[in-house]
Amino acid sequence: MDEKTAFRHELISAWCGPAFLISFIIFWVILGQNFPNPSPALTADALQARYAENLGSIRLGFIISMIIVVFYLPWTALLSTQMARIEGRFPVMAYLQLLGGGLTVMVVSFSAFFWVAAAFRPDQDPATTQMLTDLGWLCIDLQYACTTLQMIAAALVGLADKREVPLFPRWACYVTIWCGLSFLPASLTGVLKTGPFAWDGILSYYIPYACWLGWYTIASTYMIKEVNRRIKASEGAAVTSPSLSRA
């Protein structure tokens, strides 16, 4: 494959970052009625009524969420490639990041899948709706550790990046580690039904999700910059030595 095509693939993958971010907010957050999200303290009947009131919006939101979540994959692949360039021949952290990103997609995807199932038969026993909703939230809120590892892997490589213009600035790497650790209170969603650590609470929902998407925004910005920098450098090299680029 020629360099130009490779760069095009990299650029598309980089812009999958903003594409994921925007579409996730539209479909998962807004149409999926996740702002605010349903409280775990809701009774089964109240929860059933919540689905009935927003049936079309919830179905559309989560069905499309399962498609757009895959924008995360090319982005993860690009990040792995950029990390591997820093790591050299044996890019352990790049592989780890790849695994973490891939599994993150499955966790997010399965939560939306449970909520589509909950909305599938609106006239079913409310207890079933409640259980499927529980499964979705516990699925996404308790299984954050893959994402934490993905972020820590990226941060460690970023900190070890000794190039003149590094992929990520050092502050971004520390913010990344902290954001990854901010998910930890979400483990309490497995026990609590009310308060700030329940799955609709500020410390188990709003802050960890904001940290995840915040990190994703920062990382996307620097990844797009890096791709553009490499394209520019290659164009510059092509101008100065046209014979080399043809070879």
């Binding site: 050092r170 502050w171 790497c173 520390y174 913010v175 580690i177 902290w178 500020i202 410390l203 802050i207």
Partner: peptide
């Protein structure tokens, strides 16, 4: 101390400040 560590510590203290406020 490198600035990254200070940012990490600042973020951590903000998190605890939120715990305290809630």
């Amino acid at each position: 101390v490198e600035e990254g560590i200070l940012i990490f510590i600042f973020a951590d203290m903000c998190m605890f400040a939120l715990f305290f406020i809630t």
